[in-house]
Design a binder for these strands. Structure first.
Lengths: 250, 250
DNA sequence: CGGATTCTTGATTTCTCTCAACAGATGTGG
DNA sequence: CCACATCTGTTGAGAGAAATCAAGAATCCG
């Protein structure tokens, strides 16, 4: 928790953005709309509260966001991470109220778009509408994979899955090189993501390291050294998973 | 399984369907498309397999469907129940492959629509597109509520939540009268829905009954007799929940 | 009727949480 | 620059919640 919205606008100069399988360049009106609503936000800033009436769609340009729900006694469940090119649409059934918290995990560059504007954008750009569908489909696929592990998986399975999911998602962004990647997360984040306590995340990760499945370096630099075994623990085929949860360039 | 597959095959003659907040009558071209693709399916029939390439959108007209994922060792997680007016779109990120199983829990009347046709329908009917959005938003809200409980809730909390969610969803369908409703489910279904074993579902339900929170009659006729306490266990405000997870008529 | 589910309850085991203590890192202000 | 507070990560010991194993009762179905 720190200083707020400070960070002045320097290179808010977005020249292109890939959403789903679609590249939006300077000649796209959609990109101009993104630009008009760009904000740079600091890490840990909450962009939207669950239940908030003034609901907005948030497009990630740079950095990590997370969507979450929290229980009355303060426990948090991360619902999904939103990476560059992802679209967080927190709207619930009434079409007005947010059903999620959205917060910045790292400093991030986002486009915050009022619902009305967003709907107009979708109507005016079939490409954007299509990209939006792809991104939503990818998110749905991720959510159900994760629900399966939350409901039926062991701690090992949940964490193995989380590592593989994030690895696969970072790959097309150029942020995962041969199963080595950096997670800007604490073990608490991983716990909130997998429905475990931070303590148990620690134990389980260390066990993975002891067993030669992953290596870790300073603050969450991860390298998966035995993808085959880790996949087996996660109950997943990595390539099939990648196809289902990340929109691939065509 | 049981009787409720019974529903006689007479009125496959669909004269209107409410999807989200929208009524589609005989004068709607969308309804005609639904009609052209109507199928009656028996209980337990699997309509679509996770991973299946020939992916379709399924609109529920009557009865209960469930979407699910299963792990390699055969454990099942129900992702969501689909009730009349709901739309099951199992498409994953590649836009072609199904990311979910879809099966009939009861005998059901459904409209099975190929993806291409579905997209054409959405393009041609802004009302249908709007209804689709509402239904999807409601589903997203339900999924995140449930993920919170799967990750962070006790068995009591999960089951209490499930009962309240289903109660709230059945209400606008006229199937829940003053918190009394019938669930065409076994305790195993509830276990697969809440990520618990059937044994533990049984214990927990009986505890609720002993404590005067709910009454049960023959095979899953439920009456919530103390909604206040049950809501507290579920960590939910019933009316707010209802607004977030069910599309309300306008 | 007989077989197959489903439900119920008890006894035991297993997994994860909770509590606790400490080390390392980070950051702050004097 | 140091003293100090605050996070984060690590590890151990013990408690608690749900799973597993098991066996019998109730129900459904052909």
């Amino acid at each position: 928790m720190t200083r707020q919205g400070a960070i002045p606008i320097q290179y808010t100069n977005v020249t292109s953005l890939r959403v789903g399988a679609m590249d939006f360049g300077s000649d796209d009106t959609a990109l101009n709309s993104f630009r008009r609503n760009v904000q740079r936000v600091p890490a840990n800033k909450i962009l939207l509260h669950d239940g908030e009436h003034n609901c907005k769609v948030i497009v990630v340009i740079e950095g990590w966001l997370a969507t979450s729900k929290s229980s009355l006694n303060g426990e948090v469940q991360l619902i999904d991470f939103m990476l560059p090119g992802d679209i967080a649409d927190p709207t619930s059934a009434d079409g007005k109220t947010a059903g999620l918290n959205i917060e910045a995990v790292t400093g991030a560059l986002v486009s915050v778009i009022p619902l009305a504007v967003w709907h107009r954008m979708l109507a005016e750009s079939p490409r954007l509408a299509r990209a939006n569908e792809q991104v939503q489909a990818a998110e749905r696929a991720r959510l159900s994979e994760r629900m399966l592990r939350l409901g039926r998986g062991s701690a090992e399975s949940r964490i193995a899955y989380a590592l593989i999911e994030l690895c696969m998602r970072l790959r097309p962004l150029g942020l995962s090189d041969n199963c080595a990647f950096h997670l800007p997360l604490t073990q608490r984040h991983i716990g909130d993501f997998t429905g475990l306590t931070a303590v148990h995340v620690c134990r389980t990760l260390r066990r993975f390291v002891r067993n030669g499945l992953v290596e870790t370096a300073d603050h969450m630099d991860i390298r998966i050294t035995n993808l085959a075994t880790l996949s087996e623990i996660a109950g997943v085929e990595p390539e099939r998973l990648a196809a289902e949860i990340t929109p691939l360039p065509e």
